[in-house]
Design a protein around this nucleic acid. Structure first.
Lengths: 236, 236
DNA sequence: GTTCGGCGTATGGAAGTCGTCAAGATTGCT
DNA sequence: AGCAATCTTGACGACTTCCATACGCCGAAC
Protein backbone atom coordinates (compact mmCIF):
# COMPACT_ATOMS: atom_id res chain seq x y z
CA UNK A 1 0.00 0.00 0.00
CA UNK A 2 1.68 3.19 -1.12
CA UNK A 3 1.32 6.45 0.67
CA UNK A 4 1.62 5.12 4.14
CA UNK A 5 4.14 6.59 6.49
CA UNK A 6 5.16 3.76 8.75
CA UNK A 7 7.18 5.09 11.59
CA UNK A 8 7.53 2.26 14.02
CA UNK A 9 9.55 -0.88 14.09
CA UNK A 10 7.03 -3.35 12.70
CA UNK A 11 6.25 -1.14 9.73
CA UNK A 12 2.63 -0.50 10.62
CA UNK A 13 1.10 2.94 10.59
CA UNK A 14 0.20 4.07 14.10
CA UNK A 15 -3.20 5.62 14.64
CA UNK A 16 -4.30 7.07 17.95
CA UNK A 17 -8.05 7.05 18.60
CA UNK A 18 -9.31 9.41 21.30
CA UNK A 19 -12.96 8.85 22.22
CA UNK A 20 -14.93 8.37 25.42
CA UNK A 21 -17.50 6.12 23.81
CA UNK A 22 -16.32 2.50 24.22
CA UNK A 23 -18.47 1.38 21.31
CA UNK A 24 -16.79 3.71 18.88
CA UNK A 25 -13.40 2.95 20.31
CA UNK A 26 -14.04 -0.72 19.75
CA UNK A 27 -15.48 -0.35 16.28
CA UNK A 28 -12.59 1.77 15.10
CA UNK A 29 -10.07 -0.46 16.73
CA UNK A 30 -11.41 -3.55 14.99
CA UNK A 31 -11.64 -1.92 11.60
CA UNK A 32 -8.26 -0.28 11.75
CA UNK A 33 -6.51 -3.36 13.05
CA UNK A 34 -8.06 -5.42 10.26
CA UNK A 35 -6.44 -3.03 7.79
CA UNK A 36 -3.03 -3.47 9.34
CA UNK A 37 -2.92 -0.26 11.31
CA UNK A 38 -1.43 -0.26 14.75
CA UNK A 39 -4.17 1.21 16.95
CA UNK A 40 -3.68 3.11 20.18
CA UNK A 41 -6.60 4.14 22.35
CA UNK A 42 -7.33 6.94 24.78
CA UNK A 43 -10.59 7.73 26.57
CA UNK A 44 -10.20 11.42 27.28
CA UNK A 45 -8.26 14.47 26.26
CA UNK A 46 -5.54 14.25 28.86
CA UNK A 47 -4.85 10.63 28.07
CA UNK A 48 -4.94 11.46 24.40
CA UNK A 49 -2.34 14.18 24.71
CA UNK A 50 -0.16 11.95 26.85
CA UNK A 51 -0.45 9.05 24.43
CA UNK A 52 0.35 11.27 21.46
CA UNK A 53 3.45 12.56 23.19
CA UNK A 54 4.55 9.09 24.18
CA UNK A 55 3.76 7.14 21.04
CA UNK A 56 4.08 9.66 18.19
CA UNK A 57 1.23 8.28 16.11
CA UNK A 58 1.13 8.83 12.36
CA UNK A 59 -2.44 10.09 12.61
CA UNK A 60 -4.98 10.93 15.31
CA UNK A 61 -8.74 10.42 15.30
CA UNK A 62 -10.21 12.74 17.88
CA UNK A 63 -13.74 12.94 19.24
CA UNK A 64 -14.69 16.47 20.16
CA UNK A 65 -17.16 15.48 22.87
CA UNK A 66 -14.67 14.44 25.50
CA UNK A 67 -15.54 14.52 29.18
CA UNK A 68 -12.49 16.33 30.50
CA UNK A 69 -11.37 18.91 27.97
CA UNK A 70 -12.68 21.10 25.21
CA UNK A 71 -11.91 19.62 21.83
CA UNK A 72 -10.29 22.78 20.52
CA UNK A 73 -7.92 22.78 23.46
CA UNK A 74 -6.85 19.24 22.67
CA UNK A 75 -6.16 20.23 19.08
CA UNK A 76 -4.17 23.25 20.18
CA UNK A 77 -2.26 21.12 22.68
CA UNK A 78 -1.23 18.82 19.88
CA UNK A 79 -0.52 21.50 17.32
CA UNK A 80 1.84 23.14 19.78
CA UNK A 81 4.47 20.58 18.95
CA UNK A 82 3.38 18.22 16.19
CA UNK A 83 1.86 18.40 12.73
CA UNK A 84 0.51 14.86 12.77
CA UNK A 85 -2.79 14.71 10.86
CA UNK A 86 -5.85 15.09 13.09
CA UNK A 87 -9.28 13.88 11.99
CA UNK A 88 -12.05 15.18 14.20
CA UNK A 89 -15.17 13.20 15.01
CA UNK A 90 -18.24 14.88 16.36
CA UNK A 91 -21.83 14.00 17.06
CA UNK A 92 -22.92 17.56 16.65
CA UNK A 93 -23.76 18.90 13.24
CA UNK A 94 -22.97 22.47 14.17
CA UNK A 95 -21.14 24.26 11.45
CA UNK A 96 -19.48 26.76 13.77
CA UNK A 97 -17.83 23.95 15.64
CA UNK A 98 -16.49 22.43 12.48
CA UNK A 99 -15.04 25.76 11.47
CA UNK A 100 -13.46 26.24 14.87
CA UNK A 101 -11.87 22.80 14.89
CA UNK A 102 -10.49 23.15 11.38
CA UNK A 103 -9.12 26.59 12.11
CA UNK A 104 -7.46 25.29 15.27
CA UNK A 105 -5.42 23.03 13.06
CA UNK A 106 -7.52 19.91 12.50
CA UNK A 107 -7.07 18.33 9.10
CA UNK A 108 -10.52 16.90 8.56
CA UNK A 109 -13.90 16.66 10.19
CA UNK A 110 -16.36 13.79 10.13
CA UNK A 111 -19.85 13.98 11.58
CA UNK A 112 -21.33 11.07 13.51
CA UNK A 113 -22.92 8.84 12.55
CA UNK A 114 -20.27 8.21 9.95
CA UNK A 115 -19.58 5.46 7.50
CA UNK A 116 -16.55 3.43 8.38
CA UNK A 117 -15.38 3.31 4.78
CA UNK A 118 -15.53 7.06 4.52
CA UNK A 119 -13.55 7.54 7.70
CA UNK A 120 -10.94 5.08 6.51
CA UNK A 121 -10.70 6.85 3.17
CA UNK A 122 -10.25 10.19 4.89
CA UNK A 123 -7.61 8.66 7.10
CA UNK A 124 -5.75 7.31 4.10
CA UNK A 125 -5.94 10.72 2.44
CA UNK A 126 -4.63 12.46 5.54
CA UNK A 127 -1.73 10.05 5.97
CA UNK A 128 -0.89 10.20 2.29
CA UNK A 129 -0.70 13.99 2.46
CA UNK A 130 1.42 13.89 5.57
CA UNK A 131 3.98 11.58 4.03
CA UNK A 132 6.79 14.01 3.47
CA UNK A 133 8.25 14.17 0.03
CA UNK A 134 11.31 11.98 0.34
CA UNK A 135 13.24 14.69 -1.46
CA UNK A 136 16.69 14.00 -0.13
CA UNK A 137 17.01 10.98 2.08
CA UNK A 138 20.78 11.24 2.19
CA UNK A 139 22.71 14.06 3.81
CA UNK A 140 26.40 14.05 3.10
CA UNK A 141 29.28 15.94 4.64
CA UNK A 142 33.02 15.76 4.18
CA UNK A 143 33.36 13.56 7.21
CA UNK A 144 30.28 11.34 7.28
CA UNK A 145 27.07 10.45 5.47
CA UNK A 146 23.60 10.21 6.99
CA UNK A 147 21.13 8.00 5.14
CA UNK A 148 17.71 8.91 6.50
CA UNK A 149 15.89 6.13 4.67
CA UNK A 150 18.25 3.35 5.71
CA UNK A 151 18.75 4.86 9.16
CA UNK A 152 22.48 4.51 8.76
CA UNK A 153 25.52 6.66 9.31
CA UNK A 154 28.80 6.03 7.54
CA UNK A 155 32.10 7.72 8.17
CA UNK A 156 34.10 9.03 5.24
CA UNK A 157 36.57 6.24 5.92
CA UNK A 158 33.79 3.77 5.11
CA UNK A 159 32.99 2.33 8.50
CA UNK A 160 29.45 2.31 9.83
CA UNK A 161 28.72 4.07 13.08
CA UNK A 162 26.54 2.50 15.74
CA UNK A 163 24.06 4.97 17.18
CA UNK A 164 21.63 4.40 20.02
CA UNK A 165 17.95 5.06 19.26
CA UNK A 166 18.00 8.44 20.97
CA UNK A 167 21.20 9.46 19.25
CA UNK A 168 19.68 8.55 15.92
CA UNK A 169 16.47 10.47 16.51
CA UNK A 170 18.45 13.54 17.41
CA UNK A 171 20.71 13.26 14.40
CA UNK A 172 17.76 12.58 12.12
CA UNK A 173 15.97 15.68 13.33
CA UNK A 174 19.06 17.78 12.72
CA UNK A 175 19.79 16.22 9.35
CA UNK A 176 16.23 16.77 8.13
CA UNK A 177 16.75 20.45 8.77
CA UNK A 178 20.29 20.49 7.46
CA UNK A 179 21.65 24.02 7.30
CA UNK A 180 18.80 25.44 9.34
CA UNK A 181 18.93 26.23 12.98
CA UNK A 182 16.82 23.99 15.20
CA UNK A 183 15.94 25.29 18.64
CA UNK A 184 16.49 23.22 21.74
CA UNK A 185 12.76 23.20 22.37
CA UNK A 186 12.04 21.73 18.96
CA UNK A 187 14.61 19.00 19.41
CA UNK A 188 13.47 18.10 22.90
CA UNK A 189 9.79 18.10 21.92
CA UNK A 190 10.45 15.89 18.94
CA UNK A 191 12.89 13.43 20.46
CA UNK A 192 11.92 13.24 24.13
CA UNK A 193 8.35 14.55 23.96
CA UNK A 194 6.68 17.89 24.54
CA UNK A 195 6.94 17.57 28.31
CA UNK A 196 10.73 17.75 28.12
CA UNK A 197 11.04 21.10 26.39
CA UNK A 198 13.06 22.57 29.20
CA UNK A 199 15.41 19.66 29.89
CA UNK A 200 18.21 21.24 27.92
CA UNK A 201 20.57 19.00 29.76
CA UNK A 202 19.75 15.96 27.65
CA UNK A 203 20.70 17.86 24.56
CA UNK A 204 24.14 18.68 25.83
CA UNK A 205 24.83 15.09 26.80
CA UNK A 206 23.63 13.62 23.53
CA UNK A 207 25.16 16.24 21.30
CA UNK A 208 28.46 15.44 22.96
CA UNK A 209 27.97 11.75 22.24
CA UNK A 210 27.12 12.40 18.60
CA UNK A 211 30.16 14.60 18.21
CA UNK A 212 32.38 11.98 19.77
CA UNK A 213 31.12 9.42 17.28
CA UNK A 214 30.97 11.60 14.16
CA UNK A 215 33.25 14.60 14.35
CA UNK A 216 36.94 14.28 13.47
CA UNK A 217 37.74 16.61 16.36
CA UNK A 218 34.83 16.44 18.81
CA UNK A 219 36.01 19.43 20.78
CA UNK A 220 35.93 21.59 17.65
CA UNK A 221 32.84 20.44 15.79
CA UNK A 222 32.59 21.19 12.09
CA UNK A 223 29.07 19.97 11.43
CA UNK A 224 27.14 19.63 14.67
CA UNK A 225 27.31 23.26 15.66
CA UNK A 226 26.04 25.02 18.74
CA UNK A 227 24.40 28.39 18.32
CA UNK A 228 24.62 29.64 21.89
CA UNK A 229 21.30 30.55 23.36
CA UNK A 230 19.41 29.53 20.25
CA UNK A 231 19.92 25.88 19.47
CA UNK A 232 21.89 23.63 17.17
CA UNK A 233 22.60 23.49 13.49
CA UNK A 234 23.65 20.67 11.21
CA UNK A 235 26.13 22.29 8.89
CA UNK A 236 27.08 20.32 5.79
CA UNK B 1 -3.87 36.38 7.05
CA UNK B 2 -1.65 33.48 8.11
CA UNK B 3 -1.66 30.12 6.46
CA UNK B 4 -2.31 31.31 2.98
CA UNK B 5 0.01 30.44 0.17
CA UNK B 6 -0.19 33.32 -2.23
CA UNK B 7 1.46 32.34 -5.46
CA UNK B 8 0.56 35.04 -7.91
CA UNK B 9 1.61 38.58 -8.40
CA UNK B 10 -1.09 40.39 -6.47
CA UNK B 11 -0.56 38.23 -3.40
CA UNK B 12 -3.99 36.62 -3.45
CA UNK B 13 -4.55 32.90 -3.15
CA UNK B 14 -5.87 31.44 -6.39
CA UNK B 15 -8.80 29.06 -6.18
CA UNK B 16 -10.20 27.25 -9.19
CA UNK B 17 -13.88 26.31 -8.96
CA UNK B 18 -15.09 23.62 -11.36
CA UNK B 19 -18.86 23.19 -11.41
CA UNK B 20 -21.54 23.03 -14.07
CA UNK B 21 -24.21 24.60 -11.86
CA UNK B 22 -24.14 28.36 -12.45
CA UNK B 23 -25.78 29.03 -9.08
CA UNK B 24 -23.03 27.29 -7.15
CA UNK B 25 -20.37 28.83 -9.30
CA UNK B 26 -21.79 32.23 -8.55
CA UNK B 27 -22.25 31.65 -4.81
CA UNK B 28 -18.72 30.39 -4.39
CA UNK B 29 -17.29 33.11 -6.51
CA UNK B 30 -18.95 35.81 -4.44
CA UNK B 31 -17.97 34.32 -1.12
CA UNK B 32 -14.39 33.58 -2.08
CA UNK B 33 -13.86 36.95 -3.67
CA UNK B 34 -15.19 38.63 -0.55
CA UNK B 35 -12.49 36.85 1.42
CA UNK B 36 -9.75 38.07 -0.85
CA UNK B 37 -9.27 34.92 -2.85
CA UNK B 38 -8.66 35.18 -6.55
CA UNK B 39 -11.37 33.00 -8.12
CA UNK B 40 -11.12 31.16 -11.43
CA UNK B 41 -14.11 29.35 -12.90
CA UNK B 42 -14.63 26.37 -15.14
CA UNK B 43 -17.89 24.73 -16.12
CA UNK B 44 -16.77 21.22 -17.01
CA UNK B 45 -13.94 18.76 -16.56
CA UNK B 46 -12.03 19.58 -19.71
CA UNK B 47 -12.11 23.29 -19.02
CA UNK B 48 -11.15 22.60 -15.42
CA UNK B 49 -8.09 20.61 -16.37
CA UNK B 50 -7.06 23.23 -18.89
CA UNK B 51 -7.52 26.05 -16.42
CA UNK B 52 -5.56 24.20 -13.73
CA UNK B 53 -2.67 23.64 -16.10
CA UNK B 54 -2.70 27.22 -17.30
CA UNK B 55 -3.24 29.03 -14.02
CA UNK B 56 -1.68 26.78 -11.38
CA UNK B 57 -4.26 27.53 -8.68
CA UNK B 58 -3.40 27.14 -5.00
CA UNK B 59 -6.50 25.00 -4.49
CA UNK B 60 -9.27 23.45 -6.54
CA UNK B 61 -12.94 23.02 -5.65
CA UNK B 62 -14.32 20.29 -7.89
CA UNK B 63 -17.89 19.17 -8.40
CA UNK B 64 -18.10 15.46 -9.16
CA UNK B 65 -21.28 15.71 -11.22
CA UNK B 66 -19.80 17.22 -14.34
CA UNK B 67 -21.44 16.76 -17.74
CA UNK B 68 -18.42 15.74 -19.74
CA UNK B 69 -16.14 13.60 -17.57
CA UNK B 70 -16.23 11.30 -14.62
CA UNK B 71 -15.09 13.05 -11.47
CA UNK B 72 -12.47 10.45 -10.62
CA UNK B 73 -10.91 10.94 -14.02
CA UNK B 74 -10.62 14.66 -13.44
CA UNK B 75 -8.89 14.01 -10.12
CA UNK B 76 -6.52 11.54 -11.70
CA UNK B 77 -5.85 13.96 -14.53
CA UNK B 78 -4.84 16.58 -11.98
CA UNK B 79 -2.88 14.27 -9.72
CA UNK B 80 -0.77 13.20 -12.64
CA UNK B 81 1.19 16.38 -12.44
CA UNK B 82 0.19 18.47 -9.42
CA UNK B 83 -0.40 18.03 -5.71
CA UNK B 84 -2.55 21.14 -5.37
CA UNK B 85 -5.26 20.52 -2.76
CA UNK B 86 -8.53 19.30 -4.26
CA UNK B 87 -11.81 19.65 -2.39
CA UNK B 88 -14.58 17.64 -3.92
CA UNK B 89 -18.23 18.73 -3.97
CA UNK B 90 -20.99 16.28 -4.62
CA UNK B 91 -24.72 16.18 -4.41
CA UNK B 92 -24.80 12.49 -3.84
CA UNK B 93 -24.50 11.13 -0.33
CA UNK B 94 -23.04 7.88 -1.54
CA UNK B 95 -20.23 6.70 0.61
CA UNK B 96 -18.61 4.63 -2.11
CA UNK B 97 -18.19 7.72 -4.22
CA UNK B 98 -16.54 9.62 -1.41
CA UNK B 99 -14.13 6.80 -0.86
CA UNK B 100 -13.30 6.58 -4.54
CA UNK B 101 -12.67 10.30 -4.80
CA UNK B 102 -10.47 10.40 -1.73
CA UNK B 103 -8.49 7.39 -2.87
CA UNK B 104 -7.99 8.96 -6.27
CA UNK B 105 -6.15 11.74 -4.54
CA UNK B 106 -8.76 14.24 -3.43
CA UNK B 107 -7.95 16.00 -0.19
CA UNK B 108 -11.41 16.54 1.17
CA UNK B 109 -15.04 15.91 0.37
CA UNK B 110 -18.06 18.07 1.08
CA UNK B 111 -21.62 16.95 0.46
CA UNK B 112 -24.20 19.29 -1.01
CA UNK B 113 -26.03 21.08 0.37
CA UNK B 114 -23.08 22.45 2.29
CA UNK B 115 -22.57 25.37 4.62
CA UNK B 116 -20.44 28.06 3.11
CA UNK B 117 -18.52 28.58 6.35
CA UNK B 118 -17.64 24.93 6.53
CA UNK B 119 -16.43 24.86 2.97
CA UNK B 120 -14.31 27.93 3.59
CA UNK B 121 -12.85 26.39 6.74
CA UNK B 122 -11.98 23.21 4.88
CA UNK B 123 -10.44 25.29 2.15
CA UNK B 124 -8.31 27.14 4.68
CA UNK B 125 -7.23 23.84 6.24
CA UNK B 126 -6.29 22.38 2.86
CA UNK B 127 -4.30 25.43 1.84
CA UNK B 128 -2.61 25.58 5.22
CA UNK B 129 -1.51 21.95 4.86
CA UNK B 130 -0.26 22.49 1.36
CA UNK B 131 1.97 25.35 2.42
CA UNK B 132 4.82 23.39 3.97
CA UNK B 133 7.19 26.27 4.22
CA UNK B 134 5.33 29.50 5.04
CA UNK B 135 7.30 30.84 2.10
CA UNK B 136 11.02 31.37 2.14
CA UNK B 137 11.60 34.55 4.05
CA UNK B 138 15.03 35.74 3.02
CA UNK B 139 15.93 39.38 3.25
CA UNK B 140 18.92 40.34 1.19
CA UNK B 141 21.00 43.47 1.04
CA UNK B 142 24.18 44.37 -0.79
CA UNK B 143 26.22 43.65 2.30
CA UNK B 144 24.55 40.72 4.02
CA UNK B 145 21.70 38.23 3.82
CA UNK B 146 19.21 37.37 6.56
CA UNK B 147 17.56 33.95 6.30
CA UNK B 148 14.64 34.01 8.72
CA UNK B 149 13.83 30.31 8.35
CA UNK B 150 17.35 29.07 8.94
CA UNK B 151 18.06 31.80 11.48
CA UNK B 152 21.26 32.56 9.67
CA UNK B 153 23.03 35.74 8.68
CA UNK B 154 25.66 35.68 5.97
CA UNK B 155 27.92 38.50 4.93
CA UNK B 156 28.34 39.26 1.24
CA UNK B 157 31.84 37.89 1.56
CA UNK B 158 30.31 34.53 2.42
CA UNK B 159 31.12 34.19 6.08
CA UNK B 160 28.42 33.44 8.61
CA UNK B 161 27.84 35.87 11.44
CA UNK B 162 27.21 34.65 14.96
CA UNK B 163 24.43 36.51 16.72
CA UNK B 164 23.34 36.24 20.33
CA UNK B 165 19.67 35.43 20.99
CA UNK B 166 18.80 39.04 21.73
CA UNK B 167 20.65 40.30 18.71
CA UNK B 168 18.86 37.80 16.54
CA UNK B 169 15.42 38.67 17.88
CA UNK B 170 16.05 42.32 17.22
CA UNK B 171 17.32 41.73 13.70
CA UNK B 172 14.47 39.35 12.96
CA UNK B 173 11.92 41.92 14.05
CA UNK B 174 13.51 44.56 11.83
CA UNK B 175 13.92 42.22 8.88
CA UNK B 176 10.29 41.13 9.04
CA UNK B 177 9.32 44.74 8.57
CA UNK B 178 12.03 45.46 6.05
CA UNK B 179 11.73 48.92 4.58
CA UNK B 180 9.19 50.05 7.15
CA UNK B 181 9.82 52.01 10.26
CA UNK B 182 9.58 50.16 13.56
CA UNK B 183 9.18 52.20 16.71
CA UNK B 184 11.38 51.73 19.72
CA UNK B 185 8.35 50.75 21.77
CA UNK B 186 7.46 47.96 19.36
CA UNK B 187 10.97 46.59 19.36
CA UNK B 188 11.32 46.73 23.12
CA UNK B 189 7.92 45.17 23.71
CA UNK B 190 8.64 42.35 21.29
CA UNK B 191 12.21 41.54 22.27
CA UNK B 192 12.43 42.42 25.95
CA UNK B 193 8.76 42.29 26.91
CA UNK B 194 5.96 44.81 27.35
CA UNK B 195 7.39 46.03 30.64
CA UNK B 196 10.52 47.39 28.95
CA UNK B 197 8.87 49.78 26.51
CA UNK B 198 10.72 52.77 27.93
CA UNK B 199 14.19 51.25 28.25
CA UNK B 200 15.32 52.79 25.00
CA UNK B 201 18.81 52.28 26.23
CA UNK B 202 18.90 48.60 25.44
CA UNK B 203 18.08 49.38 21.85
CA UNK B 204 21.05 51.66 21.41
CA UNK B 205 23.41 49.07 22.83
CA UNK B 206 22.12 46.21 20.72
CA UNK B 207 21.71 48.21 17.54
CA UNK B 208 25.35 49.17 17.91
CA UNK B 209 26.32 45.53 18.26
CA UNK B 210 24.34 44.56 15.18
CA UNK B 211 25.90 47.33 13.15
CA UNK B 212 29.35 46.32 14.27
CA UNK B 213 28.71 42.78 13.11
CA UNK B 214 26.82 43.54 9.89
CA UNK B 215 27.58 46.99 8.52
CA UNK B 216 30.67 47.59 6.39
CA UNK B 217 31.13 50.91 8.17
CA UNK B 218 29.33 50.68 11.51
CA UNK B 219 29.59 54.40 12.17
CA UNK B 220 27.78 55.17 8.91
CA UNK B 221 25.09 52.50 8.71
CA UNK B 222 23.57 51.78 5.31
CA UNK B 223 20.87 49.32 6.34
CA UNK B 224 20.21 49.53 10.06
CA UNK B 225 19.07 53.13 10.10
CA UNK B 226 18.05 55.34 12.99
CA UNK B 227 15.00 57.53 12.56
CA UNK B 228 15.70 60.04 15.32
CA UNK B 229 12.92 60.32 17.83
CA UNK B 230 10.89 57.60 16.12
CA UNK B 231 12.64 54.30 15.90
CA UNK B 232 14.65 52.19 13.48
CA UNK B 233 14.31 51.01 9.93
CA UNK B 234 15.81 48.09 8.09
CA UNK B 235 16.65 49.47 4.68
CA UNK B 236 17.50 46.95 1.97
C1' DG C 1 28.93 79.88 23.63
C1' DT C 2 26.73 77.04 26.69
C1' DT C 3 23.41 73.69 28.01
C1' DC C 4 20.61 69.87 27.20
C1' DG C 5 18.62 65.70 25.36
C1' DG C 6 18.97 61.97 22.19
C1' DC C 7 22.22 58.83 20.30
C1' DG C 8 26.46 55.85 19.85
C1' DT C 9 30.39 53.43 22.19
C1' DA C 10 33.14 51.00 25.71
C1' DT C 11 33.63 48.05 29.82
C1' DG C 12 33.04 45.02 33.98
C1' DG C 13 30.49 42.04 36.98
C1' DA C 14 26.25 38.98 37.49
C1' DA C 15 23.65 35.46 35.63
C1' DG C 16 22.97 32.04 32.69
C1' DT C 17 24.45 28.47 29.17
C1' DC C 18 27.33 24.88 27.46
C1' DG C 19 30.61 20.86 27.47
C1' DT C 20 32.40 17.15 30.05
C1' DC C 21 32.86 13.34 33.14
C1' DA C 22 31.02 9.85 35.81
C1' DA C 23 27.88 7.53 38.71
C1' DG C 24 23.06 5.65 39.36
C1' DA C 25 18.68 3.91 37.20
C1' DT C 26 16.28 1.65 33.65
C1' DT C 27 15.52 -1.28 29.92
C1' DG C 28 15.81 -5.34 27.07
C1' DC C 29 17.84 -9.66 26.09
C1' DT C 30 19.71 -14.26 27.10
C1' DA D 1 18.13 -13.84 37.41
C1' DG D 2 22.06 -11.72 35.44
C1' DC D 3 24.24 -8.96 32.04
C1' DA D 4 25.03 -5.31 28.77
C1' DA D 5 23.50 -1.42 26.57
C1' DT D 6 21.14 2.67 27.08
C1' DC D 7 19.07 6.44 29.36
C1' DT D 8 18.89 9.69 33.25
C1' DT D 9 20.85 12.60 36.68
C1' DG D 10 24.24 15.33 39.19
C1' DA D 11 28.39 18.23 39.72
C1' DC D 12 31.83 21.34 38.01
C1' DG D 13 34.65 24.57 35.20
C1' DA D 14 34.83 27.36 31.10
C1' DC D 15 32.65 30.31 28.52
C1' DT D 16 29.01 33.44 26.64
C1' DT D 17 25.49 36.66 27.11
C1' DC D 18 23.09 40.16 29.39
C1' DC D 19 22.54 44.18 32.01
C1' DA D 20 24.05 48.46 34.06
C1' DT D 21 26.81 52.30 34.25
C1' DA D 22 29.93 55.75 32.47
C1' DC D 23 31.55 58.65 28.86
C1' DG D 24 31.89 61.09 24.16
C1' DC D 25 29.53 63.02 20.21
C1' DC D 26 26.32 65.88 17.78
C1' DG D 27 22.60 69.12 16.76
C1' DA D 28 19.02 72.20 18.66
C1' DA D 29 17.49 75.63 21.81
C1' DC D 30 18.47 79.46 24.45
Amino acid sequence: MPGKAPSNANGKTKVLVVDDDPAILRALSINLSAREYHVLQAADGAQGLAAAARERPDAIVLDLGLPDMDGSDVIRGLRGWTSTPIIVLSAREQEAQKVAALDCGADDYVTKPFGMDELLARLRAAIRRAAPAPDEPVVETDDFTVDLAAKRVTLAAGSDVRLTPTEWQLLEMLARHAGRLVTGRQLLAEVWGPAYQTETHYLRVYMAQLRRKLEPDPSRPRHLLTEPGLGYRFSI
